[in-house]
């Protein structure tokens, strides 16, 4: 039986209590994108400053409200993609979503998740791996992925 400490790792609680990159950026030049979880009311707001010349995420600011998992995931995401190229950010999105869906794939009997492991291959998730415990609590997975889906939407809109 997974315990609370699997879900709420210290690093997650730290990001929840002291979120990184909290604030706003002037729009434009930054792009604002919002994500909602209609079932639980979690809200993520991202301000993305993408440099079109270098295709780099120059700056990220975050706002919004929600549970510790959604807000910590947003904070950790902002720290992970800031300064990265758009391609690297997209790779991180894929890797993170693979991390979150391995459990589901196993449940659905779609093999051992080898294809998802391939997504994770060669990607340094770092602190983000602390969120892996979320997959043991299926109803909370959407809390963790909200920020990443919102980032993906934002990058699609700016690109």
């Amino acid at each position: 039986m997974p315990g609370l400490e699997d879900l709420y790792r210290e690093i997650i609680l730290d990001h929840y209590r002291s979120p990184r990159n909290r604030g706003e950026l002037p729009v434009p030049p930054a792009h604002k994108v919002e994500g909602f979880n209609p079932l639980c009311g979690d809200e993520v707001v991202l301000y993305l400053d993408v440099d079109p010349d270098t295709d780099t995420v120059r700056d990220v600011k975050i706002a919004g409200q929600g549970c510790s998992i959604s807000q910590a995931s947003t904070s950790m995401m902002s720290a992970a993609v800031k300064g990265k190229s758009v391609a690297e950010a997209r790779q991180l999105i894929r890797a993170f979503k693979a991390l979150m869906s391995i459990h589901e794939h196993k449940l659905e009997g779609e093999g051992d998740g080898a294809d998802l492991q391939a997504e994770l291959e060669g990607v340094r998730l770092g602190d983000l791996e602390a969120l892996q415990g979320v997959v043991k609590f299926p109803v909370r997975i959407k809390c963790a992925t909200l920020a990443w889906n919102t980032l993906q939407q934002g990058l699609d809109e700016t690109g």
């Binding site: 315990g3 609370l4 879900l7 709420y8 079932l39 639980c40 009311g41 929600g66 549970c67 510790s68 998992i69 609590f137 909370r140 809390c143």
Partner: peptide, 26 residues
């Protein structure tokens, strides 16, 4: 300082069932 869903998650550890959310009354 604690979100309703996080409270509910801890309560579940103790076998306590409560509702957390907007209660279909947004």
């Amino acid at each position: 300082e604690i979100h309703a869903h996080d409270v509910s998650q801890v309560l579940d550890e103790d076998g306590v069932c409560v509702r957390a959310g907007h209660h279909c009354a947004k």
